[in-house]
């Protein structure tokens, strides 16, 4: 079963296309305000993660996600 670090590594991977030059991703990177993702792009990003881990991620977690860390933590919680 994937753990926090597995999810984090994957999030960094799928966020690569959204990372502006010179900007380093870290766990505190904010998806919308910092990386400029739209809500639709956040959902597409989650779809990629769902397919990679073959899991279902309910939209209900979205209001609790602001940063990369929030997302990794929420994904880890789904397994619990």
């Amino acid at each position: 079963m994937p753990d926090y670090d597995d999810y984090l590594a994957r999030i960094y991977e799928v966020l690569k296309p959204f990372t502006k030059q010179g900007l380093l991703l870290n766990e505190d990177s904010e998806l919308v305000t910092e990386l400029g993702l739209t809500s639709l792009q956040v959902m597409e990003l989650i779809e990629q993660i769902e397919d990679y881990f073959d899991i279902c991620v309910p939209l209900n977690i979205l209001p609790d996600i602001r940063t990369v860390r929030d997302l990794a933590e929420q994904l880890e919680k789904l397994d619990a």
Binding site: C56, P58, L59
Partner: peptide, 21 residues
């Protein structure tokens, strides 16, 4: 309820998500 979206008009994507459930 837990809300999960499937790709628009894509029965294969629906099947994939139901299988995961």
């Amino acid at each position: 309820a837990d809300i999960i979206r499937f790709r628009h008009n894509d029965p294969d994507d629906l099947a994939k998500r139901l299988r995961r459930l």
